[in-house]
């Protein structure tokens, strides 16, 4: 059995208005891998992510998730959406139920599980993100960082094969950012993280992929990508002031 969880082949896509965002993307993720998807604004990152659970349909090429081809077939689409868990950038888009518990339970309920199964799954997911004590609170009474963690729990509870995070560290204060990284590090799951936060990519993902101009411009070890000055410059990627990836990688060991 090959261990490729996600495979994207020659994926090209143009929006209905004629604007083409992807020009042939090839990338594959194996089980348990953590990959950062980097790239300047407008590189097509969001467009790519929207193909991974069938929100957008490939104009050319194909996307295969755990052996299932992403296409318009309604039955497989439902299964694909369970297997590909996306945590959106704005947690308010993801938390729509009156309480945290009900929100996390929403997915399992739709899978037709029994009440006790749902209870234990929700309990587990909320524990993983450290939000169990807030289970009876209303989402809009939580801080932004807490809401993002609950949003993560709503996706984890579906036991996805692959977890996709869209800008997980955006709008978080440094402490919440660190807490989230600790949670993510503990998860045993295939991870694809779209981010502009390069130190975060280095901390969490051994491998990085640069999407630029609608194609994969680089694919390699995160440290190697971040230290390739010419590559970085070419794709409008910049490290924060004073951040030395080599030094950071050293101190991580």
């Amino acid at each position: 059995m090959n261990d490729v969880v996600l495979s994207v082949k020659e994926l090209a896509f143009a929006y209905p208005d004629g604007h083409q965002a992807l020009y042939g993307v090839d990338v594959a993720l194996t089980r348990g891998e953590r990959v950062a998807l980097l790239g300047p604004n407008g590189a097509g990152k969001t467009t790519l992510v929207m193909h991974l659970n069938g929100i957008l349909q490939a104009g050319h090429g194909e996307v295969v998730v755990a052996g299932l081809k992403v296409d318009a077939n309604k039955e497989t689409l439902k299964e694909i959406r369970r297997r590909v868990g996306i945590v959106f950038q704005d947690p308010d888009d993801q938390l729509f139920m009156p309480t945290v518990f009900e929100d996390v339970a929403f997915g399992p309920k739709n899978l037709g599980l029994t009440d006790s199964e749902i209870e234990s799954l929700v309990q587990k997911a909320l524990t993983e993100v450290g939000m169990l004590e807030f289970k009876d609170r209303a989402p809009h009474h939580l801080s932004f960082g807490q809401r993002r963690r609950v949003a993560l729990a709503t996706v984890l509870v579906m036991q996805p094969e692959i977890l996709i995070l869209d800008e997980p560290s955006s709008n978080l204060d440094p402490a919440s950012r660190r807490e989230l990284s600790e949670i993510l590090q503990k998860l045993d799951i295939t991870l694809l993280m779209v981010t502009h936060d390069l130190p975060y990519a280095l901390e969490l993902c051994e491998r990085s992929v640069i999407l630029s101009g609608g194609i994969i411009a680089a694919d390699g070890k995160t440290l190697n990508v971040l230290t390739d000055d010419a590559l970085m410059k070419k794709h409008r990627l910049e490290l924060p002031f004073g951040f030395d990836p080599r030094h950071a990688a050293q101190s991580m060991k």
Binding site: R81, V84, F96, F106, G107
Partner: peptide
Amino acid sequence: RGERVHLAMLSRGY
């Protein structure tokens, strides 16, 4: 936002 919420709901089996 409604559209994004709907997508989030669909991806959780709504």
